[in-house]
């Protein structure tokens, strides 16, 4: 697909007309998602702008390739940023009432590292068998074993439990074997 690098380059060039096209193609979906998850218009605009800044600085730092469509990729980045925001306000309220003062730029910088690490873990999940993937995705969503058994057609929850153990150790093996993990672990 050709548009990924076109849009990334437009961001790095600061090409307002092309960036406008990104808004036209992607903002409505992002807005819908944010609205469905406790956010408002200002939140959606903020997340979208930060996502574009994140892509800009990442591409500026080091060129990278997007394997899906640009729209799908941007949507994922926005989703993560929104999840991050929701968890952040939760954190800020609970930690002794102390809110760390950070520049917006520093915050985006941190979100870049988090996004890169998140992508590494997703990439690893894609490498295990479909069967394992389906089970683990549900497990990490905290769906009960008996519901997973029903949904995926296993005899009982015990079978699911054993599958979860097997698949998880396979996945963690793959994560640990990747040289990038050593570096990412430190984050």
């Amino acid at each position: 697909m050709k548009n990924q690098s076109v849009y990334l380059k437009a961001l790095v060039k600061g090409d307002t007309n092309q960036i406008l096209k990104i808004y036209e193609a992607s903002f409505p979906n992002v807005k819908r998602f944010v609205f469905q998850n406790k956010g408002n218009q200002a939140d959606a605009e903020d997340v979208f702008q930060k996502a574009l800044m994140q892509l800009t600085v990442r591409y500026k730092k080091e060129k990278f390739e997007i394997k899906s469509s640009f729209e799908a990729y941007l949507f994922t980045v926005c989703k993560n940023l929104w999840r991050r925001k929701l968890n952040k306000s939760k954190n800020e309220v609970t930690i002794d009432g102390v809110i760390e003062l950070k520049s917006e730029e520093r915050d985006i910088a941190m979100s870049v590292l988090e996004q890169e690490r998140w992508e590494f873990f997703q990439e690893k999940l894609e490498l295990i068998s479909d069967n394992c993937k389906e089970i683990l995705k549900r497990f990490f969503k905290k769906i009960a074993y008996k519901d997973i058994a029903k949904e995926l057609g296993y005899n009982d929850e015990n079978v699911v439990r054993q599958r979860v153990f097997k698949c998880k150790s396979k996945l963690s093996q793959m994560i640990k074997e990747d040289i990038r993990f050593k570096e990412l672990k430190e984050l």
């Binding site: 985006i108 988090e114 690490r117």
Partner: peptide, 29 residues
């Protein structure tokens, strides 16, 4: 893995562990 693959939580990086990388990006930004 629980944190990374969760739909709800988010795995924040630690500022004190990543000063250099964060600083570089911040300066660029």
């Amino acid at each position: 893995m629980r944190l990374q693959y969760s739909d709800e939580e988010w795995d924040f990086v630690k500022d004190y562990k990543n000063r250099k990388k964060i600083n570089e990006l911040e300066v660029l930004l």
